[in-house]
Simulated scan of single mutants.
Amino acid sequence: MDAQKVTLRKMTLSEYDAATEHREAEATRELSKFMPQELARERTRQGTAQFLPDGLDTAGHHLVVAENGSGEIVGNAWIGPDPRQASGTTSSAWLYDINVFAPFRRRGYGSAILDAAEELVSREGKTSLNLNVVGGNEAAIAMYQRNGYDVSSMYLSKRVQR
Rank of each mutant, 00 (worst) to 15 (best):
residue 101 F to D: 12
residue 82 D to E: 11
residue 147 N to S: 01
residue 20 T to R: 15
residue 135 G to L: 09
residue 31 L to M: 15
residue 101 F to E: 05
residue 121 V to I: 13
residue 128 S to H: 09
residue 131 L to D: 04
residue 84 R to S: 08
residue 91 S to I: 11
residue 46 Q to P: 00
residue 15 E to A: 01
residue 98 I to C: 10
residue 59 A to Q: 10
residue 3 A to H: 09
residue 43 R to L: 11
residue 130 N to A: 12
residue 145 Q to D: 08
residue 125 G to E: 06
residue 57 D to H: 15
residue 31 L to G: 00
residue 41 R to I: 10
residue 46 Q to C: 10
residue 87 S to C: 12
residue 98 I to A: 00
residue 89 T to V: 08
residue 32 S to R: 06
residue 30 E to R: 15
residue 12 T to P: 00
residue 52 L to E: 01
residue 68 N to W: 01
residue 124 E to H: 09
residue 85 Q to Y: 06
residue 93 A to C: 03
residue 41 R to C: 12
residue 64 V to L: 02
residue 84 R to Q: 04
residue 98 I to H: 00
residue 104 F to I: 01
residue 153 S to W: 04
residue 151 V to F: 03
residue 8 L to V: 02
residue 37 Q to M: 14
residue 157 S to E: 15
residue 157 S to T: 09
residue 67 E to C: 13
residue 68 N to S: 04
residue 92 S to H: 08
residue 127 T to K: 08
residue 8 L to I: 05
residue 144 Y to D: 02
residue 159 R to H: 07
residue 82 D to I: 00
residue 51 F to S: 09
residue 147 N to V: 09
residue 28 T to S: 10
residue 10 K to L: 09
residue 116 A to D: 02
residue 122 S to G: 07
residue 44 T to W: 14
residue 129 L to V: 01
residue 144 Y to E: 03
residue 53 P to C: 12
residue 20 T to H: 13
residue 106 R to Y: 05
residue 87 S to R: 15
residue 31 L to Y: 10
residue 65 V to A: 04
residue 77 A to C: 03
residue 143 M to K: 06
residue 14 S to F: 05
residue 50 Q to A: 15
residue 154 M to A: 06
residue 152 S to G: 07
residue 62 H to R: 13
residue 66 A to G: 03
residue 93 A to P: 03
residue 40 A to R: 11
residue 111 S to D: 02
residue 44 T to H: 05
residue 115 D to R: 14
residue 5 K to Q: 11
residue 88 G to M: 12
residue 28 T to C: 06
residue 117 A to N: 03
residue 81 P to D: 13
residue 25 A to T: 10
residue 128 S to F: 05
residue 141 I to Q: 09
residue 150 D to R: 13
residue 108 G to V: 04
residue 47 G to M: 06
residue 115 D to L: 13
residue 84 R to I: 09
residue 71 G to W: 07
residue 43 R to H: 15
residue 27 A to K: 15
residue 76 N to G: 12
residue 98 I to L: 08
residue 98 I to W: 01
residue 20 T to S: 12
residue 144 Y to Q: 06
residue 34 F to Y: 04
residue 48 T to A: 14
residue 14 S to D: 10
residue 157 S to Y: 14
